[in-house]
């Protein structure tokens, strides 16, 4: 009569060890399926990266092409001609210079206006903060063509000639929001007590700003300024609608696309790409050094 319990115990044992296995395997799909899932994920991820990467490779490689005819769309043969004669097309060079001038002005104005707004939004408590936050975000939620076209209807209705000034106006309009958002994220958690301490110790307000506030918010402002500069160089749609006869680099590419697409376009783009990567790496290096310094 002592025998009957045994099978039950065995069965229980078996069941618990089975569930033990289940815990090891955490249930669900068999290992081969999970492995397949893992590999599948990696394949999709690298495929997507490749998709992002290939057009950039095309831009760089085709700067070394010697195209047959006026369009640099089909590979013909390797050549350094475009690199040794980058300024062959004056209008392209002038457009690039113009783009940099616009970007410089836009960056300075946006950095100042955006930083002031970011400080106000983070540092102070005041009414209308919600409304102002919404106004700041709104331009980022509209298609460029709508922003650009609405600005154009304003310039037309007040009979304002389009050119350098209207391009700057248009670009600052969307950059200010980016600067304010970027700087705001960086100065959040900033210890405003430091400012008060300086003031209490008799430092005049302008000196407090230069010696205390500015150094602390500067990394955020520089990051925002670089972003603005890049956005300005890159912007096409809003700028194009408000440019009149003035021509930035993208506009020049656009207006001559039906008549000529020379490899010099690729040369400039590659040069800007390399410079941007260099600046980004420098930024990472400086940030790391600063972090190390602060940590030490």
């Amino acid at each position: 009569m002592s025998a009957p319990p045994a099978p039950t115990a065995l069965a229980q044992d078996a069941r618990s060890s089975a569930s033990g296995l289940a815990v090891l395997g955490r249930g669900g799909p068999p290992p081969w399926l999970r492995r397949a899932g893992r590999i599948g994920l990696a394949v999709v991820a690298f495929g997507t990266l490749l998709y992002l990467f290939i057009p950039i490779v095309v831009v760089v490689v085709f700067s070394f092409n010697e195209p047959q005819g006026k369009y640099n769309y089909v590979w013909n043969q390797f050549s350094l001609d475009a690199w040794t004669d980058p300024f062959r097309y004056e209008e392209l060079r002038d457009a690039l210079v113009f783009s940099f001038q616009v970007a410089a002005v836009v960056t300075v104005i946006s950095a100042v206006l955006g930083t002031l707004m970011a400080i106000a939004m983070v540092k102070y408590r005041f009414r209308a903060k919600g409304v102002i936050g919404t106004i700041l975000i709104l331009p980022l939620t509209m298609p460029e063509v709508v922003l650009g076209f609405s600005l154009l209807t304003l310039f037309v209705s007040v009979n304002w000639a389009r050119g350098f000034v209207t391009i700057v106006i248009a670009q600052v309009m969307f950059s200010v929001s980016y600067v304010a958002t970027t700087v705001r994220a960086r100065v959040r958690g900033f210890d405003w007590g430091l400012e008060e301490a300086a003031l209490d110790l008799g430092s005049p307000p302008w000196r407090t700003f230069l010696r205390v506030t500015l150094p602390l918010i500067l990394p955020g402002v520089i990051a925002a300024a670089l972003l603005t500069f890049a956005l300005s160089l890159d912007d096409f749609i809003i700028t194009y609608l408000n440019s009149g006869k003035d021509t930035t680099f993208p506009i020049q590419v656009w207006t001559t696309k039906k008549s000529r697409v020379p490899p010099q376009i690729n040369v400039f783009s590659t040069a800007i790409l390399v410079a941007s990567i260099a600046i980004a790496l420098l930024g990472v290096y400086l940030t790391n050094r600063r972090a190390k310094k602060l940590g030490a």
Binding site: I56, V59, A230, P250, K257, I265, I272
Partner: peptide
């Protein structure tokens, strides 16, 4: 990709 102008990227 953002380091290459939008228009040129699309031309590629």
């Amino acid at each position: 990709p953002f380091f290459v102008t939008y228009l040129v990227r699309t031309l590629a």
